[in-house]
Amino acid sequence: MVFLFSELIDYVDERMDVEMKQVTAVIFLVSFLIWGTSAAQAQTTQKDLIHGLGCDSCHDTEVPQKLEGNGVCLSCHGSYSEVAGLTSKMEPNPHVSHLGEFDCVACHKPHGESEFVCNQCHEFEIKMPEAAN
């Protein structure tokens, strides 16, 4: 709660002068108290998240932190090579790259529009699956 509140203050800070900020901060604080924990999901709506999971499905800490590596994704999906096996019929296999293993979120973006990064250079006929968005 404290974390999110301070973030909101920062957000407001960029846009308003000090007086307005104080008033708005109070409004936000009140909203917070009413909403309780559901407010945590107000920033990123359910449909923006991969598989429609909640924040704590991935960010398993009291204060959500930026995740490194593929550990969280692979804890459900198996190893990277197992994932590559699932797409082995695709031409080319998007999980076999000359650059080795990618961060899953380089393409499958939990907080934004997913992107097939290979096509930053190549022009493969591969689209990101909707389920992953």
């Binding site: 000359h98 650059l99 080795g100 990618f102 961060d103 380089a106 393409c107 990064v117 930053q120 250079c121």
Partner: peptide, 9 residues
């Protein structure tokens, strides 16, 4: 030398 998804190549 370019960088794609954090990887130099």
């Amino acid at each position: 030398e370019i960088t794609i998804a954090g990887k130099k190549m």
